[in-house]
Design a protein around this nucleic acid. Structure first.
Lengths: 216, 216
DNA sequence: CGACCTGTTGATTCTGCTCAATCAACGTGG
DNA sequence: CCACGTTGATTGAGCAGAATCAACAGGTCG
């Protein structure tokens, strides 16, 4: 990853995501895009919460640690999505750039009344997390990987080629498995003729229906 | 369970829960309490969403099913809590009474602007689910059980006696394990001297610190 | 070139699941 | 009152899936 992220082609923001945040964006006079290089912290655990963040390009991971150092990634956020919701006045998760991400701060001016679109976005986050809860609670490793691939395919609006912006370690901590298991599952999916790796971070989906069947 | 739930003593609503929903309750002219007997469906999957619900007494479970019938309980809601948030216009989870629960419908009159307290409650739900995500993704069976016990202890405002309003099956589907494993873990915790069972649904916590250590 | 990092693969271990038996509590009907 | 069926909980034996430990490959960068 020697090309500076700012100079890479920015992922197009999927059409279905533009509408739902347009109101919020215009209402909040978003600041300029800040560029967070790979691995950079956007906000830390324990930091005072408040503003929301809008992903202009790239990918962001939301993480939480256990006392003994195990990490769980609770969400990835791609271009066009909003993150940073917090119930208390402190972040109990932290956010990092996965691959060099451009992020706008949305000033919510906490005093003002929250807009309906803010509630709607919070509910989107809730739905997404609830869905992931199901995956972690009741799915085996194969199914977990399948659901990530389907999820990314939908977000990237392509059922042929899916790009994995994050590395194996991140996938593992998102799916609640080890990175070795991620490797093995990808191999298994290859041997089943469901996917093909074009490169280490590019998956070609050969049988999308099979993937979907695995996750519902 | 031959005593009709309406005649059982209603659980006191913990003090810390009254404040945060008071505004919402008064703003929404809640309807009368509806009594849902054990196992009754409060809303179904696919049903049109809209109203929120306030738990007056008893416990409610929020569930989701996989295509092949596996169930994940994404949340339990106790007296004083609000549930029913949904991102789309249909419920993609369903809600059932665990033990005979009294529930008020909060009419949100969807057209009106959502109140700040509504957002706040949605964020509380989000935080709770994110926390559970961590439990399912990165904790073993013992730690999962411990976190449920600590959670219930806090909600019931007692670090000595915790009542389990739900049965083993429900606990299992909440923790993402089998009900046999729940039994085994309770035995293990007993043998470690951390808990004692006063009855099948009443846990006496002998070493609260040990439990807390197990879940953070 | 050599050090390092990420990813892959193999061997072994172990946690929790599956299958199954047993038990206790409760309700029903003779 | 007792025999019986049902339901939920407990316990055991064996197994499977994923973790752990370890070796190695390929690419990148100093």
């Amino acid at each position: 990853m020697h090309i500076h992220p700012a100079f890479r082609a920015t992922a197009a923001i999927p059409a279905h995501k533009v509408g739902e945040v347009a109101a919020l964006l215009s209402a909040m006079q978003p600041a300029a895009v800040t560029l967070y290089p790979e691995g950079a912290v956007i906000y830390a655990q324990g930091e005072k919460a408040g503003p929301l963040y809008y992903v202009e390009f790239g990918t962001v991971r939301i993480c939480r640690l256990t006392a003994d150092g195990r990490r769980q990634i609770t969400a990835f956020h791609c271009a066009g999505e909003v993150f940073g919701f917090e119930a208390g006045d402190e972040h109990d998760s932290y956010a990092e750039s996965v691959d060099g991400a451009g992020v706008r701060v949305l000033r919510t001016n906490c005093g003002l009344q929250p807009t309906g679109s803010m509630l709607m976005l919070a509910l989107k986050s809730l739905a997404r997390v609830q869905n992931h809860l199901m995956v972690l609670g009741r799915r085996n490793a194969n199914e977990r990987m399948a659901s990530l691939l389907v999820d990314l395919a939908e977000r990237q609006e392509s059922d042929r080629i899916v790009t994995l912006p994050m590395q194996r370690n991140d996938i593992a901590d998102y799916l609640g498995v080890t990175f070795e298991t991620v490797s093995r599952i990808l191999r298994a999916l290859k041997e089943m003729g469901i996917i093909r790796m074009r490169s280490v971070s590019e998956v070609e989906i050969l049988d999308f229906v099979a993937l979907e069947d695995m996750c519902e």
